[in-house]
Design a protein around this nucleic acid. Sequence first.
DNA 1: GGGGCCGTCTGTGTATACAAACGGCCCCTT
DNA 2: AAGGGGCCGTTTGTATACACAGACGGCCCC
Lengths: 222, 222
Amino acid sequence: MLSGRASDRAYETLRREILQWRLAPGTVLGEVEQSTRLGISRTPLREALSRLTADGLVEAQSGRGLVVAQVSPAAVSELFELREALETAASALASERRDPGEFARLADDFDGAAALVEQGELEAYYALVERFDDAIDESLGNPYLVGALRGVRTHLQRIRRLSQDDPARLVRAAAEHRTIAEAIRDGDAELARSATRIHLRASLRHIQANPRLEASEPKESA
Amino acid sequence: MLSGRASDRAYETLRREILQWRLAPGTVLGEVEQSTRLGISRTPLREALSRLTADGLVEAQSGRGLVVAQVSPAAVSELFELREALETAASALASERRDPGEFARLADDFDGAAALVEQGELEAYYALVERFDDAIDESLGNPYLVGALRGVRTHLQRIRRLSQDDPARLVRAAAEHRTIAEAIRDGDAELARSATRIHLRASLRHIQANPRLEASEPKESA
DNA sequence: GGGGCCGTCTGTGTATACAAACGGCCCCTT
DNA sequence: AAGGGGCCGTTTGTATACACAGACGGCCCC
């Protein structure tokens, strides 16, 4: 059912499991163990691990082989520094290249997003954010920049699970997104940049203020 | 001689050859062909190609397998957009975290760099730039940001070969670097950001004004 | 003479077998 | 009893053999 290559399936499966915390940070990824579990041989599994390492989701631990990359409060701050650099630039550039209609629609949708959140339709809200990200990517028309953004968003998915969905924060985030979308719609690059920075700083502060980071020690599988 | 793993050697070798244009953009990288040439089996070669693909130096071509990534004027502009986003942020952050002595020394060295260039000591000049980049990376203390910068610099090495070393431009670039180093030394984040932007725009304009881009057709390796 | 179909053939994708390195553990020595 | 050295087991790294898919060319039919 899933696409042809075993290495692709292994990559997608492991990636999903890591992002969903089904594979916790520090988990040792033995080649034999994982290839057996996924029903493939070591060869395609190794390719999958290689790609995950390139993504930064898997790290080499001193002598112990590969483990799921750790997450620490410091890493979150560092990731957000990169994120701010990329997304402020992306918003500014998108302002100059966007399809105004698309972002007008997004601004309207974010206007109604508070209702979504308050009705518990979190999936719908996250889908809207994803549509927003896609619209920016498409406006940019820059594979290098989009690729860097993708990498950051990957890590963000894992971090998002640190602070559970807080409806109050999401309502505010929706308003911030709306401001960004309006600025891009109006072609106001500097305003888009500022609005993006404000949104990211608020997001980071929220995550830091809700530290669900259990000190994830490198642990042996039980 | 070169470090233990065959896949590492293959990766380093191919990477160097691509960056030095010994493997031209569009060159088809057949697995059997390359593994034979490098004296290894297909398994480690495939791992090396996988990493090069993650780096963006190798791309999958529709049905033809893997080829050395193309370089186009559009790609150069796009790369510089990403570069500006990253390096302006890096300079600003480095200004807040730097060791002032280190950047004072760098500023002095860039002051003398015009002499280096005019004496044809280009290697010494490039080594100085590398020392500058390393000093910024170390100041940042942010693996995510440093990793993104590394990726951009990799592609830049290949692009640099497009416009041959122009001493007049390098002398001006040295002065621009000096300005950046001084701003970082003084902890002036906004000045560092502006100086970096100026430097990058000038660099891009120079490359675009000296188009040595032969239309690199996909060609078979000889 | 042109177009479509089939066979072949080159190349990638996967599995497995083999080799070497690393760590852990026990035993021996002092 | 503590430290060091050697042995064994496990795990990774590499090579090779096999399977399958896509591309190219020839041949036949229209």
